Computed example of a mutant assay.
Amino acid sequence: MKKVYPDAASALDGLLQDGMTIAAGGFGLCGIPELLIDAIVASGVKDLTIASNNCGVDGFGLGKLLDTKQIKKMMSSYVGENAEFMRQYLSGELELEFNPQGTLAERMRAGGCGIPGFYTKTGVGTVVAEGKEVKTFDGQDYILERGIVADLSIVKAWKADETGNLVFRKTARNFNPPAAMCGKVCVVEVEEIVPTGSIDPDLIHLPGIYVHRLIQGAHEKRIEQRTVRKREEA
């Protein structure tokens, strides 16, 4: 099965439709599938539900899809770096489903493992629990959270072989593996594609069985919050 495509547009060909749910990997601006996001922007697909830890920043990453009003709903745990997100949410233009960070990651992982739901103590007694089933185990209350199964996963990895076995770099390993797992179709962008068999099996973070399409490209890798000290005078 040929998984390697020449570019992001061809890798997404035939997969995009209005109203679909997309799981996007990355954390802040680390490990985000920026090339695939740009291709989704260019496609014009709309009314999207996006499951992702955050929504990029103004004008970059998933923030580009906010600028073009292509997102209908976000399922996120942190949205504090995006002024346009705040504006759209407060004006009623954007739906928001808040998730505790660990809950969101587990919802993706559960969906990828065929687990329809799980119970967690996180969010008990808060607005997160509103409308959800509460069950008592050993005298403690837990709320039922549903697994996420997305129509499409878009993921950024560091290296892949031609069968889609993936290696992630550092922080990019957080949300990308569970996001990749929960999509009915998973499209991945990487910095390098190497021959099959050249990656030590012990170093593979996500097996290629989860990956359907693959592209290689150059990435901007912005710094989300650049903090520097003032230069000391000699």
Rank of each mutant, 00 (worst) to 15 (best):
K3P: 04
P6R: 10
P6H: 06
L12M: 11
D13M: 11
L15P: 02
L16G: 05
D18I: 08
I22Y: 01
A24M: 08
G28A: 11
P33G: 06
I37T: 10
V41L: 14
V45K: 09
V45E: 04
V45W: 02
T49P: 12
A51I: 09
N53S: 06
F60N: 01
L62D: 10
K64Y: 13
L65I: 06
L66W: 08
L66Q: 03
K69S: 14
I71A: 06
M74Y: 01
V79H: 09
N82P: 13
E84C: 01
F85C: 07
N99E: 03
A105P: 08
R107V: 04
M108W: 03
G111P: 07
G114W: 14
G114H: 05
G125V: 15
T126D: 09
T126A: 08
V127I: 09
V128N: 09
V128P: 02
V128D: 12
K132F: 01
V134Q: 15
K135S: 10
D138Y: 15
Y142N: 04
I148S: 00
I154D: 04
I154W: 08
K159V: 09
A160V: 00
D161I: 07
T163M: 13
G164I: 07
L166D: 13
V167M: 12
A172W: 02
F175P: 00
M181E: 07
K184Q: 13
V185F: 06
V188Y: 01
E191H: 13
I193Y: 14
S198P: 11
D200V: 12
D200A: 12
P201Q: 10
D202N: 12
G208C: 11
I209D: 14
V211C: 05
V211E: 00
H212M: 00
I215S: 03
H219Q: 08
E220G: 13
E224I: 02
Q225T: 14
V228A: 02
